[in-house]
């Protein structure tokens, strides 16, 4: 083979694309509204991103390993409802204080873990398609939370809510807790995806599970772990979410699953699995949140068109990231 002088390595569109889009949005926002880059708005955008973002990090692993989870939005609503019920029920015996908050958090984490494990069990052990399983559990959790709330709203006891609120509104050094937790989840997630055996195995299973199996990778266990991890992260997101409004209803978390999946895909993770990056997902979440934020701060376009613009961005992101197929 004759090798001509090496061409300059090109930075791929899939890396630049999401970053460029994010920068463009920020510039656009800053030009349209002077408050856009103010600390209040930045903090607001990041806190709002945190719920979907924490879930989307888990979703990145699920999708990278060739799976999918449509149930996370309903799951979050159900976990929130359950958490509120448990805390209200424990109020007479525990009173308002740190223990009851810890009980609520533990409830959320355990419920998320079990819910994720159930999805994983049906998918990896019984071998049912992830799409079908999570479509089913999506309906089940949604209907369970509606039933628990008897068609209305489950509200946290008022005193309890006031006590719990700092978990959403408080923070350290002016950075709110949701942002801190989001950042920690992202950093751990990025390291795990990039440099852990688990992350590498996820990518291997997603690109070809037969190869993984023949390479002695514990395919079922890794897949299961991705769903359990996602369930756990739904629990974490819920812990941050409940103090914000102090309630849960049948409309809590609606379409979160699609926002999380969209963020993952905008970030450059392959929907069919085999390659994922957590930092990309973060950018995806920020892009989605910023679109809503900019529409709210300006009045060129109706905020009602938020969904349309998000949809456009998702399609555009995927089109731009398509790599030309290498020859031979």
């Amino acid at each position: 083979m004759t090798v001509k002088p090496q061409a300059r390595p090109k930075v791929s569109m899939s890396v630049i694309g999401p970053i460029a889009a994010l920068i463009a949005l920020i510039v656009m926002g800053a030009l349209m509204n002077p408050n856009f880059l103010g600390p209040d708005n930045i903090s607001n955008v990041l806190s709002r991103s945190a719920f979907i973002g924490i879930i989307a990090v888990g979703m990145t692993f699920v999708i990278t390993a060739g799976g999918l989870d449509l149930s996370v939005g309903s799951m979050a609503a159900f976990v929130a409802g359950l958490m509120i019920l448990v805390m209200n029920a424990a109020l007479p015996s525990l009173g308002i204080g740190v223990p009851i908050i810890l009980l609520g958090m533990a409830t959320a984490l355990v419920a998320g873990l079990i819910a994720g494990w159930l999805n994983g069990f049906l998918i990896t052990v019984l071998g049912i398609e992830a799409f079908i399983v999570t479509l089913g559990s999506m309906g089940i959790y949604r209907s369970l939370v509606t039933w628990l709330a008897d068609g209305g709203t489950l509200s946290l006891d008022f005193g309890l809510r006031t006590f719990y609120q700092p978990v959403f509104y408080g923070g350290i050094l002016g950075i709110s807790w949701p942002i801190i937790v989001f950042a920690v989840v992202v950093i751990l997630g990025e390291i795990a995806m990039r440099s852990s055996v688990f992350g590498r195995h996820c990518a291997a299973i997603g690109s070809n599970d037969q190869v993984a199996k023949y390479s002695s990778v514990r395919v079922g266990r890794v897949r299961m772990a991705t769903y359990v991890m996602l369930g756990l992260l739904v629990g974490v997101a819920t812990i941050m979410y409940v103090p914000r409004l102090g309630s849960a209803s049948s409309s809590t978390g609606v379409l979160w699953e699609l926002e999380a999946i969209a963020a993952v895909i905008i970030g450059g993770t392959l929907l069919k699995g085999g390659f994922g990056r957590v930092w990309g997902t973060v950018i995806g979440v920020l892009i989605l949140t910023l679109i809503g934020n900019i529409l709210n701060l300006t009045d060129f376009v109706s905020p009602y068109l938020n969904g349309a613009i998000q949809g456009l961005i998702i399609v555009l992101a995927v089109v731009l990231q398509r790599e030309s197929k290498p020859g031979a």
């Binding site: 055996v197 590498r200 085999g274």
Partner: peptide
């Protein structure tokens, strides 16, 4: 092609896939 190698991945990821644990003390040593 369908059971032996990850065709979309590079040589390094393929080479170490089966023995990956021996390259990791916590994190993978690239």
């Amino acid at each position: 092609k369908t059971r032996g190698l990850l065709l979309q991945k590079g040589m390094r990821e393929n080479l170490t896939l089966q023995a990956l644990h021996s390259f990791a003390r916590g994190l993978i040593d690239k």
